[in-house]
Design a protein around this nucleic acid. Sequence first.
DNA 1: CGCGTTTTGTACTGACCGATCCACAACCAA
DNA 2: TTGGTTGTGGATCGGTCAGTACAAAACGCG
Lengths: 193, 193
Amino acid sequence: MARPREFDESAAVESAMHAFWAHGYEATSTQDLCDATGLGRSSVYNTFTSKKALFERSLTHYTDSQLTARQALLEGPGTAAERLTALLTTTIDSELERNRRGCLVVNTLAELGMPDDGIGAALRSDTERNLAMLTECAREGVLDGSLRSGRDPADVAQFVLNTVTGLKVMSRRDTSREAMYAVADLALSAVVA
Amino acid sequence: MARPREFDESAAVESAMHAFWAHGYEATSTQDLCDATGLGRSSVYNTFTSKKALFERSLTHYTDSQLTARQALLEGPGTAAERLTALLTTTIDSELERNRRGCLVVNTLAELGMPDDGIGAALRSDTERNLAMLTECAREGVLDGSLRSGRDPADVAQFVLNTVTGLKVMSRRDTSREAMYAVADLALSAVVA
DNA sequence: CGCGTTTTGTACTGACCGATCCACAACCAA
DNA sequence: TTGGTTGTGGATCGGTCAGTACAAAACGCG
């Protein structure tokens, strides 16, 4: 029983996410967010409270969508080795499609570290969920025989996450696609049977 | 035949570097730089022209000192495998000593990408020099038999750089020392003979 | 001692920052 | 239609931003 919204809230979050993604947290002004979302200042603050809160929304939106895509891949068909291979190749490909903007999570980690607030909590949660998925995949790899045994699955998960994280930074360097594939290949050689 | 400086220029660069390192480029204000260096605004601008120019000085100071230390290690005694092992362990140790501030190069890459200016040039130069050193080390490793053969030394270099870069981001996560060592161990297992 | 030159401290610039205020618009229920 | 409630646009808030202007200060040199 009041005036309805004139915009789609989740679409606004999506737009804000791209603005933060492209320029980082500090370098994105509230005016940039208004421009990106098409909203007036009042609507932005009325809906999202503050720049930081909107960033947190954007970040969790990013991690959630990224995580579901990754989950579909890691819990999909094929051997664990095949799924890890697919994870690395799609990481490289999508990273290059993004015009070397890198990854919002990694960029945020580098820019803000682990703040003692919702942003840090979102980063922590993302890390844990990724590690959980990768650990499970590593465990399955030992069972299906596609991955080397003798390693703690949690360590394998950390290693894969480290490689993926590294690739997301390497994409911001000038690193060529071929070099990135070579990195992925070498990393896989450490874990596949 | 004029009024002499009242401060040490390179000491000021060192202080500015730590300020940028701790908070990133955007989040470090010119006032922060004055506080960190102990200089007045006039002295800062008279000596370093602009915030960006001072950042560039700070960044090259960082890369130069980091590179000489790394060079001493990679071109030092021992087999190539031993030197690469030492590189990874000292990377982890020094990264943890820094209170998880991460690496200025990686943080800058994530925050600013590869700008088309002196900063981008400094980042590019640092990458190339690191890859050159690592490539040479990988080549030597094939000769001294400590590293697996059959891989392009340039690819091995990219892989090691990727691992190191990843670890520098992982240090900004909550990643434990043990997990980081496990990552290093797995990475080494891919390249050592 | 002054004179030329550079550094330094301080005040200041216009622009922009994140955030708020408020009048008005738009809707629903009564 | 009217009253209650929420959304919106635009002006505006105090504060900070990077950078500058300028005069006093500190030296080397004659």
